[in-house]
């Protein structure tokens, strides 16, 4: 399996001078293609910071963080923007554009790829069908339920066939049934498309979808070997 993300001894700090506070300590983590990794940890442990660093949304400081073979530490801003196009983000809130229909929201992501608009449109509709929203293609976010919106967000993240999916508590706003469906969808599509997925979650109901579990506490990462042990604990 090839490494999509390779992190070595990554440290991250907020603030400067006396107020400088270290958030992440010597993070080392590898994500492989086709893998679903769950990241757990109490709030304030640095999960979101790690996620934004991996997603090229924040500048890295020291250590090494390679996404798709590209070093993000000290990378220029334009390079970060380009790398983002290979990453599918699923946010805690769905963050859909309210003025666009489900199909248009997904197509906004597809249009970042070098595709003809007609193809982008077609793929967006296929992806919405894949997440079970074939009959909601022309609905606006305001006309859909929380679970449906989150599925649009997943379709948007996956339509451009990203090499990596970063999901921040994708089930937090959902009931257990639709939350389960959403995570299984991420798992299924990332297996099909061979991309690495990192899901940040507090939700113990979904631990079994993970290939690996990692735990972040006080900025330090520990790996739990098998998902089975954690599910039983």
């Amino acid at each position: 399996m090839s490494a999509i993300v390779a992190i070595h001894d990554l440290n991250h700090y907020y603030g400067s001078g006396e107020l400088r506070k270290q958030i992440l300590f010597d993070i080392t983590l590898t994500l492989n293609a086709g893998e679903v990794v769950l990241l757990k940890g109490p709030s304030g442990s640095g999960k979101t910071t790690l996620l934004t660093l991996m997603g090229a949304l924040r500048s890295c400081q020291t250590g090494s963080l390679q996404v798709l073979g590209q070093e993000l530490v000290n990378a220029p801003k334009a390079k970060l923007v380009n790398i983002r196009r290979n990453i599918g983000y699923i946010f805690q809130g769905h963050n859909l554009l309210h003025s666009l229909t489900a199909r248009q929201n997904v197509q906004m992501s597809a249009e970042l790829q070098p595709l003809r608009s007609a193809v982008a449109k077609q793929r967006s509709e296929q992806m919405l069908t894949a997440v079970g929203l074939a009959d909601h293609i022309d609905y606006y976010p305001a006309q859909m339920s929380g679970g449906q919106k989150q599925r649009v967000a997943i379709a948007r993240a996956l339509v451009s066939h990203p090499k990596m999916i970063l999901a921040d508590e994708p089930t937090a706003a959902l009931d257990s049934k639709s939350g389960r469906a959403v995570v299984e969808l991420i798992q299924q599509l990332s297996k099909e498309q061979g991309c690495a997925s990192l899901i940040v979650t507090h939700d113990n109901r979904i631990l079994d979808v993970a290939d690996r579990l990692v735990h972040l506490e006080d900025g330090r990462l520990t790996e739990i070997n098998t998902s089975a042990t954690l599910v039983s604990s």
Binding site: L57, V81, N82, R85, L97, S109, L112
Partner: peptide
Amino acid sequence: EYATLKAMG
């Protein structure tokens, strides 16, 4: 929404 678009690339 604009921040989301930036995150998308």
